Computed example of a mutant assay.
Amino acid sequence: MMAAEQGAAANTLAAYRSDLVLASQALDGDLAHADAAAIARLAEGWSSLAGATVARKAAALRRFYAFLHAEGDIAVDPAAALPRPGTARRLPKVLGHADVDRLFAVLGQRTAMPQPLPGDLRLAALIELLYGSGLRASELVALPRAAVHPDRPFLILRGKGGRERLVPISDRARAAVAAWRVHVAADRAWLFPSGKGHLSRIRLYQLVKALAADAGIPPDRVSPHVLRHAFATHLLAGGADLRALQAMLGHADIATTEIYTHVDTGRLVDLVNSRHPLADAGRVDGKAARP
């Protein structure tokens, strides 16, 4: 149902499946017929887990029991016994421009060699697309071989929930992809092939962290998702419209995009001081203007 009717992504399906299997094991295989008391006992076993993890597990079970109830397989939905923990949204890790420059400096040295290694060309294409277009790791590794056209500054991507969006591709990224693609056989389905499939997200994480270490940046500060955050925060700091950023990132809810407005509060204050109709009459940074 989730795949056919709701277009849930493969990673979402895998997460739901894992949560349901674990819950079934905890209930001795009788998950479908558990009552509210059994569900409450199951939830008590989650007390040591993070709030976000509990929220995810509870969401999987709610969806499961709602489906059974709608199909008439159970008379009573026991999901009311599931907890509803608050999930505070954490501020994303952010890389400064200097850190990003250090990453690209290392890549520049490697790809400027007379005969650069194919692995370095691949890494350059990956980083250009992560930072230059804000792709998710799962979207990036699964790009078809012909997804990026040399004469088209965008690609149409199907992201979370099967939603399509238009993603801008910079001239630098297209050049990096073109340099890498000559090393990908024409009969390969993926732009970043590996074995019989495509590069895994885990391998992508390893490559990004190794690059960070070579650039003198602590690897725990850098990941594919951190580069996506950097794309968003740096665009926003440069004056990008929040709605346009939402579209480029593929966020269903603009509240998700608004998390990036924390990055440059100084710029926001300067914006109010310079653009507000009363800017000439006073300051909004706590220092009153002198007459």
Rank of each mutant, 00 (worst) to 15 (best):
R89Y: 00
L61G: 07
A112I: 07
L68F: 03
V272M: 12
V100Q: 04
L130S: 08
V182E: 14
L95M: 12
D77T: 11
R290D: 08
V148Q: 03
V141F: 06
G197L: 07
V106H: 02
F154D: 12
D214W: 01
T12I: 04
D171Q: 14
I217T: 09
E164D: 13
G266H: 15
T261Y: 12
R56N: 01
Y260W: 11
V222E: 02
A147H: 01
P92F: 10
H234T: 04
M1I: 11
A38D: 14
P153R: 13
A252V: 13
D101T: 14
L31M: 09
G239W: 13
S194I: 03
D35I: 13
H198I: 09
G134T: 13
P224M: 10
G96K: 05
Y65H: 07
A146L: 13
P277A: 09
K93W: 01
P118E: 07
T257V: 03
A37Y: 11
A112K: 07
Q25K: 13
L207K: 03
L135C: 06
L13Q: 08
P118T: 08
L130I: 14
P277W: 04
A88M: 00
D151F: 10
E258Q: 15
K93I: 07
G29A: 05
V100K: 02
A9R: 03
R84I: 04
D120F: 01
V76E: 13
G7W: 06
A189T: 12
R283Q: 13
A213C: 00
R165V: 06
A34W: 12
Y131L: 03
P114G: 10
R90L: 14
S223E: 12
R163P: 01
L199G: 02
V141G: 05
M248I: 09
A9I: 00
A125S: 14
A247I: 02
L157I: 14
H234Q: 15
V177N: 06
A125G: 04
H97R: 15
I217M: 07
A289K: 15
A147Q: 12
L13G: 02
M113N: 01
R275G: 03
R122L: 09
